[in-house]
Design a protein around this nucleic acid. Structure first.
Lengths: 193, 193
DNA sequence: ACCGCAGTGGTAGTCACTAACAGTTTGGTA
DNA sequence: TACCAAACTGTTAGTGACTACCACTGCGGT
């Protein structure tokens, strides 16, 4: 509830021009309560990264495939879970809310910075999930390079998705971004296609 | 001078535990003076991105090459300018200072986030320099995906460089990171090698 | 009626950062 | 030397995010 009011106020008046006290008042609670649920003002907007989910998808992929393919397909699949499968044409309320938060995130430096740093944390989780045992620094370096590049491509897809107002399916956009960066074919999700 | 004291204090006591007033006192100036030279506390540490330089290198590359190759070679070249050419074995004072700031940047969330956002601004400049006229949204999307992935690989190289205490040449590490992400051969700088 | 406990609120403080104003130093000019 | 303008520095008084600490309320179980 607090989050809903926050995103609405931030969108209407701007992020910087809206204080946490404003959000608290709109939600009918005290500023203290806001801080109890959301450790920082930025967390009122930022999208849950689902680190756990992505990591599980990574371990589920075949270790025989190239790194960017393993990571890419995991990201595409997690995007499906995020948008709810993407069945019909109309956007669900969940997707609308996601879009509103993404638009704030893109246009507000503080939010954008924190989101990019969250992506960096996700990168660490991906490298861990890839099964890097830490013995070979070159292997870890390779994994970090691949993971960071894949996540950067995904971020580009997120921005494009928000600019498109969600008209294109997010998983498809991510696959397109991966293909644009790494070349066609590397990021196909379903081999039976 | 202010910056030198700031990095030293941040390294000794920690970034969060050091106030801007502390930095000002160590530098023998008032807190206001610090804010006049560095708009935010983070700017006391962050590395100059040299957006202009990278953009010029991009326009100097052949438009016939693949995007990641154009961007990659520009990033490798700008890294040479940043570290000062990398001639001898010993680290220059400039490189030492760069290393200290990088270490802070990697370990401090606020600094890391802002640096990643600076990279995002650099991405915009790279896309602009690539000559995207904005008419075709797919072309722009392609350029953004490639640029973001290249910058992510470069960031990975920066982290590795700091972990290595600068023992490996930074431009070489960036080339290695690009090769790890995009495949060998795509990021070679000098064709005559 | 009693206890524990999760959720909520108040108070006071720290610190990054800003705006408005005032004093000082510096470099160029007559 | 005298002078002026511009750059530099300092003071004060704020705003707002965020924290630590303590008190209060409702609520199910014994």
């Amino acid at each position: 509830m607090i989050q809903t009011h926050a995103v609405r106020l931030f969108t209407e008046r701007g992020y910087d021009a809206t204080t946490v006290a404003d959000v608290a008042e709109a939600a009918g609670v005290s500023p203290m309560t806001v801080y109890r649920h959301f450790p920082t003002k930025e967390d009122l907007v930022l999208v849950d990264q689902r680190v756990q989910l992505v990591a599980e998808q990574i371990t589920a992929t075949s270790a025989l495939q190239p790194l960017v393919r393993r990571i890419g397909s995991a990201l595409v699949d997690s995007a499906k879970a995020l948008t709810g499968g993407g069945s019909g044409n109309d956007l669900t309320a969940n997707e609308q809310f996601l879009l509103a938060r993404l638009r704030l995130m893109i246009s507000t430096p503080a939010l954008r910075a924190k989101h990019l740093d969250n992506n960096y944390a996700l990168q660490q989780a991906i490298v861990d999930a890839l099964g890097d045992d830490g013995t070979d620094p070159d292997t870890a370096f390779h994994a970090h390079a691949a993971a960071s590049a894949c996540l950067a491509a995904m971020h580009t897809a997120l921005v494009r998705w928000a600019e498109d107002d969600g008209r294109t399916e997010l998983p498809d956009l991510i696959a397109k971004a991966l293909a644009a960066a790494f070349g066609d074919g590397i990021a196909d999700t379903d081999p039976d296609k």
